[in-house]
Nucleic acid binder design. Structure first.
Length: 628
RNA sequence: GCGCCCGUAGCUCAGUCGGAUAGAGCAGCCGCCUCCUAAGCGGCAGGUCACAGGUUCGAAUCCUGUCGGGCGCACCA
């Protein structure tokens, strides 16, 4: 059924061959609304050039030679276009039977996303990273790839050190993360990421008056972190952050700690590989004396300074060098991380973590060894990401070159807040937890108003509110700047998740009513049930049939917005079908009141629509309520 | 200065790797619930696809240039 386009390509190719011509790839496209036919091809234009003849005449000849595949009635020439008319019964029945399962790709993709500094609460800028990465992982998995989601924890960085030091500096003791939360108290009083974040911002302000002492204290904490002495504290902050991401519906396979990457020797081994490169050197004099630098000018033209520091003259590695080691490991070149369970995730599955005291294997599970790597990282980090990739390519090793070729930086643009840049350092952010609370609150108010008798009102409010938030981050391309504004992010009508969810609930409602009427909505319709379906059903079924190719394209392009746009299109097609009226002004697409036979066919189509809406939403990490 | 990204309706965005009359949502106006969920549907209005060249049977889409906006170019990450 979704293979109709493939079948058409083949059929067109045979007809074209009949004219003694060949075309490498025959485009098959949907026919515009008001033109005759369902699918069509402009291939006659291409042939016109080689055959040096009128495209309309060629189209007519192709039509003559065309033998319709199953599910297709006939072809007709519409000017220079060649359009085909589907057999409504056969096509609709094929769509209702469901799509072919996604092929097993036999390739493993490691998706790294989230990677929020473990020193403060996540804000709505991080929301975009989490939601984008989670959706990409879901899409790749659904499209047949073996997917592993990693979340990198920069536990040796300055930011983590500042938060830990801030608590000490202000003489405050962090709250017990297991103590029951006081519902009335602000999160900064009991949720550890918020608690530390508040101290972190306060410490930033205190630097003006007491900079030297703070600097010394932070440096001490950084050294302690490098020795792994304060890992437990960072782990508690990470756990607090994860609670938020889990509530959003994201899950992970592995936390990779920077300190473990370093301790496992990936940094030094990565550097050893790079040092063998003719592009890497250690100058004795000049401004880079004593540092290890990489010369990238041949590969990245136009740089003011073509040398990049990998290891500082004081011996400390730069982020780029550490990341090269990490990326090598992802690609399977290095071994040696140890693993321990970190948590059982509400969304499913055990979350593992790298850990110095862990085991060599994780219950028989193998991490890394990626065939392809996707790094979901802010577009502002494009430059260092390019440097990492260049370093892999410059390593002179086939593995490094392969890793570079299959590493993708999924760059997303910033999220501004009401037109203003956010700063975690200054504390001018909107906490993700607060945004989620507000989204659910607003959705709850609408649920109470629209459907006061709804049984699972709270669960529906969560699904709708969080769905709206996620959808707002996903519906346009990653390279678009998003300005977070309450009215738009939490809008519940128009091009939003609730619009799609509502269409889903409406379909579910019909199936419920069918059950109440003694029908089995899951029973396959009889062989001749589809005889009475017409153009309205075909138009809807055509939309449904697009789903697998949308999913595959979204996977190939790492572009969840394609799925979001498709979900809107399918919901629109379904709503239009549902509300359709005949020439007499009376509804003409009723399901349960249709004559027997047609009734079963429509009911089955509605079931397929519902399943497809739910599947599309699931790729975006959005729940599909049965009622709302 | 150099590099990357963006410029489509008043606003926010889609636009099937060059195809048919450029589509949605929001905002505005007009209609539709004795009918399976009106968070919905139909209609009206709104466009020199930033600008100028070029390639092509055909360009919002590809190439060159210009203008406007964002980001990046540390011994930070």
């Amino acid at each position: 059924m979704s293979d109709v386009k493939d079948a058409l390509r083949a059929a067109f190719a045979r007809a074209v061959a009949h004219l003694g011509a060949t075309v490498d790839a025959i485009p098959v496209q949907e026919v515009p609304e008001d033109k005759p036919g369902d699918y069509g091809t402009p291939v006659a234009f291409v042939l016109a050039k080689t055959l040096k003849r009128n495209p309309a005449a060629i189209a007519a000849e192709v039509v003559d030679a065309f033998e319709p595949p199953d599910g297709v009635l006939r072809a007709e020439a519409v000017g220079p276009y060649i359009n085909v008319v589907l057999d409504p019964a056969a096509f609709t029945a094929g769509v209702v039977a469901g799509p072919a399962p996604a092929p097993a790709r036999g390739r493993k993709v490691v998706v790294e996303h989230t990677s929020v500094n473990p020193n403060k609460e996540a804000h709505v800028g991080h929301l975009r990273n989490v939601v984008l990465g989670d959706a990409v992982a879901r899409i790749l998995r659904a499209d047949g790839y073996d997917v592993e989601v990693q979340n990198y924890v920069d536990d040796t960085g300055r930011q983590a050190a500042e938060s830990l030091f801030a608590a000490h500096y202000f003489g405050e003791t962090p709250p017990d993360p297991h103590a029951p939360a006081d519902p009335g108290a602000p999160r900064t009083a009991w949720k550890l990421d918020h608690w530390y974040g508040e101290r972190y911002v306060r410490l930033g302000r205190a630097k003006e008056a007491d900079g030297d002492a703070i600097e010394a204290g932070v440096a001490d904490v950084m050294h302690a972190l490098e020795r792994g002495e304060r890992r437990a504290e960072i782990e508690r902050i990470v756990a607090a952050q994860l609670a938020t991401f889990w509530a959003l519906g994201a899950t992970y396979d592995l936390l990779v700690w920077e300190s473990d990457v370093v301790a496992s020797g990936f940094l030094s081994r990565g550097l050893a590989v790079l040092e063998a490169s003719p592009y890497v050197e250690r100058p004795d004099e000049g401004k880079y004396a004593g540092a290890l630098v990489m010369r990238v000018g041949d590969f990245l033209p136009g740089l003011e300074e073509d040398r990049v520091v990998l290891v500082r003259s004081d011996g400390n590695a730069m982020y780029v060098a550490k990341d090269v080691g990490y990326q090598f490991w992802k690609a399977g070149l290095f071994e040696g991380l140890r693993y321990a369970p970190f948590a059982e995730q509400p969304g499913g599955g055990r979350l593992w973590t790298s850990h110095p005291a862990g085991a060599d294997d994780a219950d028989g599970r193998t991490f890394a060894h990626a065939d392809a790597i996707v790094n979901v990282i802010d577009a502002r980090q494009s430059h260092p990401q390019t440097l990492v990739k260049t370093a892999l390519a410059l390593s002179g090793t086939p593995e490094g070159e392969t890793a570079a070729r299959h590493a993708h930086h999924l760059a997303y643009e910033v999220v501004t807040l009401e037109g203003e840049a956010m700063s975690g350092r200054k504390g001018t952010t909107l906490a993700l937890d607060d945004a989620m609370d507000e989204a659910v609150r607003r959705a709850g108010a609408v649920v109470a108003e629209k459907n006061p008798d709804l049984a699972d009102a709270d669960a529906v409010a969560r699904a709708v509110g969080l769905g709206a938030l996620r959808f707002a981050m996903l519906k346009s391309e990653a390279k678009r700047i998003i300005d977070f504004r309450w009215e738009r992010a939490l809008d519940l009508q128009g091009d939003t998740a609730p619009y799609v969810q509502y269409a889903h609930a409406r379909a579910a409602s019909i199936r419920r009513a069918a059950r109440d009427a003694g029908l089995d909505p899951d029973a396959p319709p009889g062989a001749d049930a589809f005889a009475a379906v017409g153009p309205l059903e075909v138009a809807l079924a055509r939309r449904v049939a697009q789903f697998p190719e949308v999913r595959t394209q979204a996977a190939d392009e790492l572009a969840p917005h394609l799925v979001a746009q498709y979900a809107l299109d399918l919901a629109t097609a379904w709503n239009g079908y549902y509300n359709h009226r005949g020439p007499d002004g009376a509804p003409d697409t009723a399901v349960l009141r249709a004559e027997p036979g047609l009734r079963e066919a429509r009911l089955a189509l509605v079931g397929r629509v519902q399943a497809t809406l739910a599947a599309a939403l699931d790729l975006l990490g959005i729940e599909a309520p049965e009622a709302m």
